[in-house]
């Protein structure tokens, strides 16, 4: 940081009123080496007080808007409760589906890994779709008998 920049910071502190009397005298002495900056310091010192430019705080108190906001906060809280209940239900459903799949996988594993696979063992498909003698099969047998040369 240059000496000029340091002086600019000291000027700000002087105007803010946070500089001690001794530091203020030192600042003003240093400024004699920088006539341009010294003039800027003088102009800044002459600035009117800006603190009251936007009036008192109480003028900005708006009970209606504050009440409206409090009402909106309640709605946000209610909305969050609903969303949390919904997400809990979704979470439980996911657990239920995962548990069902796990049970199905374990049961399938028993049948698949229960010794070498032969025709005498039922496959998972056969469990769900049991083989039944169908009319179609009987018809095929009948046709075989019919055309079989005697």
């Amino acid at each position: 940081m240059t000496e000029r920049e340091q002086l600019e910071i000291l000027i700000t502190e002087a105007i803010d009123g946070t500089l001690s009397g001794e530091d203020l005298r030192m600042l003003e002495q240093k400024l004699t080496k920088y006539p341009g900056l010294q003039e800027e310091y003088r102009q800044i010192r002459r600035l009117p007080d800006l603190a009251a430019v936007y009036g008192e705080l109480r003028l900005f108190h708006d009970s209606d808007n504050i009440q409206h906001l409090l009402g909106e906060f309640d709605l946000i809280d209610k909305g969050k409760d609903k969303a949390e209940t919904g997400s809990e239900w979704i979470r439980l459903s996911r657990y239920a589906v995962a548990a069902s799949l796990a049970i199905f996988a374990i049961l399938s594993l028993f049948y698949v890994t229960g010794g070498s696979y032969t025709d005498s063992y039922l496959t998972a498909e056969e469990m769900f779709y049991p083989m039944e003698e169908s009319t179609g099969e009987n018809y095929v047998l009948y046709l075989n008998d019919l055309f079989e040369p005697n």
Binding site: E5, E8, I9, T12, E13, D16, R46, L47
Partner: peptide, 26 residues
């Protein structure tokens, strides 16, 4: 904070210049 104080200096300098332009010389 140092940068903020530096900006404050420049802001006050600008304000003094602008007030002069607007006919309200500080």
């Amino acid at each position: 904070e140092q940068t903020l104080k530096n900006r404050m200096f420049r802001a006050r300098k600008e304000l003094a210049k602008t007030l002069k332009l607007l006919g309200a010389e500080p």
